[in-house]
Amino acid sequence: MSTDGRPVLEVADLEVHYGLRRRRRRVLHGVSLSVSRGETVGVIGETGSGKSTFARAVLGLVRASGGRILIDGEDVSRYSSRQWRALRRRGVVQYVFQDPLRSLDPDLPVEESLIEPLLVQGVGRKEAIERGRGYLARVRLDSELFGRLPGELSGGQRQRVAVARALITEPALIILDEPVSALDSANRVGILEILKELRDAGVALIFISHDLGSVAGVADRVAVLYQGEFVEVGATHAVINTPQHPYARLLVGSAPTLRSAAASRAERDALRALLHA
């Protein structure tokens, strides 16, 4: 791990609320996390835990109602939409969606989707295509695929295109939302290997998932999000081997494993009862 260097992302006491007045409800509460260059952090939570909201807040797609977000040392919590657009164009933070079939325009050749961030930056078309080919090679894709439509690629190839698209602006931080859950084994390993290379190259990664197992192999640290709060943050092996919070324990006990015994049904039921109490 090369976790030294100043943090790329610092989130302190982040609060996010949805809805207005009576309907106002808290989605994130007192969330703090810092991610350094070359570090991979897994954010684990179930549906509705607020993990997507966390990502969207960092990307400026939802407004924080409290706390601070610093990207590369710059406080972005009070940014106007114009400032956000300028920040996004610089491509410091990128995002990879879970389902590449939906995050790539189905009517545009993959080449167009791939180089879109560069075109938005104002890079000339020729140069953008040239650079695009380089990144396609980096995710181990043949540039023959350049002219194809997303529907003509396999799921694994599509996700590689999506990763290449995120890489093309040389970001300091990439947020990945369940990037491998829609993929089959061979492709999952392929993508995870690419992510490891990125981490070694000094890119900070936030890996969002509902499954502890899917981030165990790549994350240095894990943060468990439950009902809008980080209930457990720590080194991956510590969270997996000695989870403290009941939800973290339930998470470890529920993950399907091959040979090691999963927690018994009785144990899981007991933990659930504890959580609902």
Partner: peptide, 17 residues
């Protein structure tokens, strides 16, 4: 073997047991 290896390298099995 690939399916199993995936769990051993990238899954919880890597840490457990």
């Amino acid at each position: 073997r690939l399916l199993i290896a995936e769990h051993e390298q990238y899954g919880l099995d890597r840490y457990l047991a």
